[in-house]
Amino acid sequence: MSITLVDARIVTPEDVHDGWLTIEDGRITHVGRGAAPGAGLSLGGRYVVPGFVDQHNHGGAGASFPAGDPEEARRAVAFHLGHGTTTVVASLVTGPLEELARAASALADLCEEGVLAGVHFEGPYISAARCGAHDPALLRTPDRAEVAGLVKAARGHARMLTIAPELPGALDVVRDLVDAGVVAALGHSDATHDQTLAGIEAGGTVATHLYNAMPSLHHRDPGPIAALLQDERVTVELINDGVHVHPAMVRLAYSVAGAGRTALVTDAMAATGVGDGSYRLGNLAVEVKDGVARLAEGGSIAGSTLTMDVAFRRAVRLCGLSLPEAARAASLTPARLLGLDDRVGSVTTGKDADLVVLDEELTVTGVMKRGAWHVGP
Rank of each mutant, 00 (worst) to 15 (best):
D109M: 06
D109S: 11
D109V: 08
D109T: 09
D109R: 14
L110K: 08
L110H: 05
L110I: 07
C111I: 06
E112K: 10
E112Y: 08
E113N: 04
E113G: 04
G114R: 09
G114W: 13
G114T: 02
G114Y: 11
V115H: 03
V115M: 10
L116N: 01
L116C: 11
A117W: 07
A117I: 05
A117S: 11
A117N: 04
G118M: 09
G118P: 00
G118T: 01
G118H: 06
G118K: 08
V119Y: 11
V119Q: 08
H120Q: 06
H120N: 13
H120C: 07
F121V: 12
F121C: 12
F121H: 15
E122K: 08
E122Y: 09
G123Q: 00
G123E: 06
P124K: 04
P124G: 00
P124D: 01
P124E: 04
P124V: 00
P124T: 00
Y125P: 02
I126Y: 01
I126L: 14
I126G: 07
I126F: 02
S127Q: 10
S127R: 10
S127A: 13
S127I: 04
A128V: 12
A128D: 03
A129Q: 14
A129R: 15
A129E: 15
A129K: 15
R130S: 00
R130I: 00
R130A: 09
R130Y: 06
C131T: 12
G132H: 00
G132N: 11
G132E: 13
A133M: 08
A133D: 15
A133N: 11
H134R: 03
H134S: 05
H134Y: 07
H134M: 07
D135H: 03
D135N: 14
P136I: 10
P136D: 10
A137R: 15
A137G: 08
A137I: 05
A137L: 13
L139Q: 07
L139D: 08
L139W: 06
L139I: 04
L139S: 03
R140Y: 04
R140F: 05
R140C: 01
T141I: 12
T141C: 05
P142F: 00
P142T: 01
P142I: 00
D143E: 12
R144D: 11
R144A: 13
R144G: 12
R144K: 12
A145F: 03
A145K: 14
A145C: 02
E146Y: 08
E146H: 09
E146F: 06
E146V: 12
E146G: 10
E146R: 12
E146M: 13
V147K: 01
V147G: 01
V147Y: 15
V147R: 03
A148C: 08
A148F: 07
A148G: 11
G149M: 01
L150S: 07
L150R: 03
L150E: 13
L150Q: 02
L150C: 02
V151M: 15
K152T: 13
A153M: 02
A153Q: 12
A154P: 06
A154G: 09
R155S: 09
R155Q: 14
R155Y: 02
R155P: 05
R155F: 09
